[in-house]
Simulated scan of single mutants.
Amino acid sequence: MRKNPFEDIEEMLDRVSRQVESGMTSGGLQVPGSVPADVVDTGEEYLVTADLPGYETDDIELTLSEGTLRLEASREDEEASADGRYLRRERTRTSANRRIRLPEPVEEEEVSAGYENGVLTVRLPKVSGGEESRQIDIE
Rank of each mutant, 00 (worst) to 15 (best):
A82M: 07
A73T: 01
N4L: 08
E45N: 12
D38Y: 15
R18N: 08
T63I: 04
G43K: 12
E76N: 10
N4C: 05
R93I: 02
T49H: 09
S74A: 13
T92P: 00
D38A: 11
D59W: 10
E78P: 01
D41H: 11
Q19K: 14
A50Q: 01
M24A: 09
R93A: 15
Q19V: 10
E11H: 10
Q19I: 11
Y55S: 10
Y55R: 06
I9S: 11
E10M: 11
G67T: 00
S74R: 10
R70I: 11
R88C: 07
A37S: 05
E45V: 02
N4V: 01
T63L: 04
R98N: 00
T49L: 07
L47I: 12
G27L: 07
S34D: 06
R89W: 08
T92E: 06
L69C: 05
E56N: 12
S34P: 00
K3E: 04
G27S: 05
R70N: 15
T42G: 13
E7C: 03
P36L: 03
E66W: 00
D8M: 13
L29S: 08
P32F: 09
S17Y: 06
R88T: 09
R89C: 02
V20P: 00
T25D: 15
E11R: 15
R93F: 05
R91D: 14
E78A: 15
E44R: 08
E61M: 03
N4S: 10
E66T: 03
P53F: 07
